[in-house]
Structure formats: C-alpha cells, structure tokens
Design a binder for these strands. Structure first.
Lengths: 207, 207
DNA sequence: GCGTGTGAACCTCTTCACAGCG
DNA sequence: CGCTGTGAAGAGGTTCACACGC
C-alpha cells in the first residue's frame, strides 16, 4: 500500500474484483486483464488499473493479472484473508436467509453464531448453528477482537440490540433495520436499504 | 425539475430525506431544516440544500421546509407517489422476510405478488399473499407497465428467472443473487450485496 | 502487439461563504 | 436573527493518451 487514504468506492470495487476472481478461479482461468474486470463490473479499464496500482503493481504487461495472486492480494488488503468472525442478531427470516441460502454466496463469508431474544427460538438448529440467547453474545465473541454483527431483528428492536452489541465490544455493524441507530465514535455502521434501492429503480426506470 | 441530469447519489439521498420526513411526519413535526437532515443523514447542510434546489425551491428562509409538502414533492420526484407494482420472485427466506418483517419498513413500499418455481410452495399463504407459480408472472403483471421485480431465488437460478421476467416485460430488477445477470438495454438492474458490505466493514473496522 | 502503469486533462460532487428573504 | 438558495472555490474521482515492459 502506498500510504494513501482509500475511499469507500475504491474498496467497494475491490470487493467486486474479488468476487470476479473467485469466479475466474473456479473456472480455472490463470490470468485476467483490466478489460475483463471492466466488462464484468461495468467500469472503465483505466479505473480498474488505477484501483489496483493504488496498492502495488500486481500486473504484467502484455498478459494481465495472475488470478490466484491477485485474489490473495485483494483479500489481504480487505482483511478477508483470515475471515472475520461474523454473528447474526435475530433468527427471523433474514437471519435464516443469511445462514441457509445464497446470501453469503460468492462473497466468501460465513457466519459463526446466531442469536435471538425470543426464548422459543433459542436452542433451535439452523443450517448447522444453534440459536443462542442474546445474553450469550459477550461470551461467544470473547477472544475475537474484531468481529462484525449483523442486525436483523424486528422493527423497533434495533437500538436495544445495538446497545448490547456495543457493550460486548462490537465495532462493526451491518443493519437490516432502517431505524436511525445511535452508536459511539469508532464504530462502523452500514445499512442494507432495500427500500432505497427500490426508490432508485423507480426513479431510473422511466428511461 | 430544472432539466439537469440527476446522479444516482442525489436520488439515493432523496430517498433518505423521504424516510426522515415520514418519520418527522409521524412525530407530528411541521417543519424541518437542512440542518435536521444533515444530522440525521450525516451529510453537510449545504449538500442537502443543493440536492433540494435541484428540483425547485421548496424551503422558506428563516423557517425551513414544510414536512408534508416536501415529502409530497420528493415522492413525486422519485415516482413513489403512486407506489410501484412490486413482485417477488422466490418464496424462500428472503421473499418471506420482505413480506413479513420490517424489510419494507419506513420505505413506504409494499409487495403485490410472490412467485416460486417449487410446486410445493405454490398455493401457500404468506403475509396475506398466496405464492403463485412462475408461469403466472405474465398475467399478474399485465396492466402494470412499470413494475419492479425482486429476484430472491436459489443460487444458480437467477438467470433463468430474469429471462422469464424480461419476457414478461420487466424493466427494473433488484437482485439478491450475486450472479452476473444478462439483461437487454433499457432494463435497470441493481444488486443487494451483503458480502460487499461485509468487506467494507472488514476493511474500515481497523480504524 | 498487447496490456499495464501513470501523469495530465477533465469532470463531477462537495464545501465555503454570503446575499437575501421571512 | 435564522435558514434558504447559490456562485465560487476546492477536493476527489474518472477518462485520456501514451510510454514502457513482456
């Protein structure tokens, strides 16, 4: 890395490149070019090269990038080379979807624990994991300094859960709840905003 | 509208403003200021005013913006004033989550139909909707020129479903499947990328 | 010849600062 | 006096075009 501050948009594209590379790897491709990423991700090939050279010179003139090496490099930049410990708060439909179906997909992530407040759900098996009580969050994450929590609880329950998470040392949260959440400085918070994506589609649909 | 081309990022923020306004409305607030949006959405107040003046002069100096009027204006810009017809392809956990739980949340959207290929799911009731066979897509959407389809099917099934959707006249798709999807020109396609959000959190977590 | 790496030009978005109106 | 609307300045990201290495 060249010591530059890197923007979210660049990191987002690195994540896309990683996904393409896993795909290329599984298809047995040895090398890819910036033009390949360009077509797959819908950005200019110059932008791809700029993104990558921001962290080093990974390519070879004339041939392109080695799939395996570049994937290793990008995963080590993202920090996903040793995969983050991810827990899910809420064992409803979203929690189940994350565990069971293709939501993790080509992303390379997997989930380590799932929690719910509802005592009727605690103890149930779900895609190999047993639903735990929220009281067990702290002990479950002990030893994992950097872990990510996914908030997927009922509407109105978000802040309560987030408070517990923060209390257990959480510093990164991905929320499916749209409620505005209070968090202290130093905690990363992102949202999955289905309704905003629908708004965008609605707006751009009319040519 | 002043005839300018508006960027995705601006529309995304309008969607956020709309969400804030629904919240303010439900709390009985009469007016809000650009500073209010600024705090709630984490952007500068100047940016808020720039966004809004791009479509007209909705504010009053000294007092701010009328909540009801501004919400009307924004919804009419987004096109959500008469809400889009939205269908869900896939009655698995994600489809159910969309229908049942808070995913629609404060977004103001609702879903009109849900489909699955699995004959065992067809006919099942789900949050008031009966799961239909994919063969019924075309007849279900007839009469709705602009409709949005949400793709939430098993991994590997995405393209098949998208082809059917396109065939039925669909021009806007929101996919939870991360597979790269082939679509003709003129069709809007967006993805919900949980794994990319997790990558972003992983990267930015380490201070 | 092909594809990377990169300075320079270009463009878009954001922030600043302030005039003007309620 | 408070807050909007807005030109001007600034920052950041993207595209261009080309030299260089394979």
């Amino acid at each position: 890395m060249k010591g530059r501050k890197v923007s979210e948009i660049t990191i987002r594209r690195l994540s896309h490149y990683a996904r393409c590379l896993r795909d290329a790897k599984s298809k047995g491709e040895r090398t890819v070019t910036s033009g390949y990423f360009s077509r797959r991700c819908g950005i200019s090939s110059a932008a791809v090269r700029k993104d990558l050279t921001m962290f080093g010179e990974f390519g070879k003139q004339g041939s392109g990038y080695n799939v395996i090496e570049l994937l290793d490099q990008i995963e080590s930049i993202l920090g996903t080379c040793d995969p983050p410990f991810i827990i899910i708060a809420g064992a409803g439909n979203i929690g189940k979807a994350l565990l069971e179906s293709g939501l993790e997909g080509t992303g390379g992530h997997s989930y380590s624990a799932i929690f719910d407040i509802d005592p009727r759900l605690v103890g149930i098996k779900c895609a190999g994991l047993t639903v735990k009580s929220m009281d067990e969050i702290r002990t479950t994450v002990s030893g994992h300094e950097n872990f990510i929590a996914i908030v997927a609880v009922s509407r109105g329950e978000g802040q309560k859960v987030v408070d517990r998470l923060i209390d257990s040392g959480c510093r990164a949260i991905l929320s499916f709840n749209l409620e505005p959440l209070d968090i202290p400085d130093g905690v990363e918070l992102r949202y999955i905003e289905v309704s905003t994506e629908l708004d965008l589609l609605t707006y751009f649909m009319k040519t």
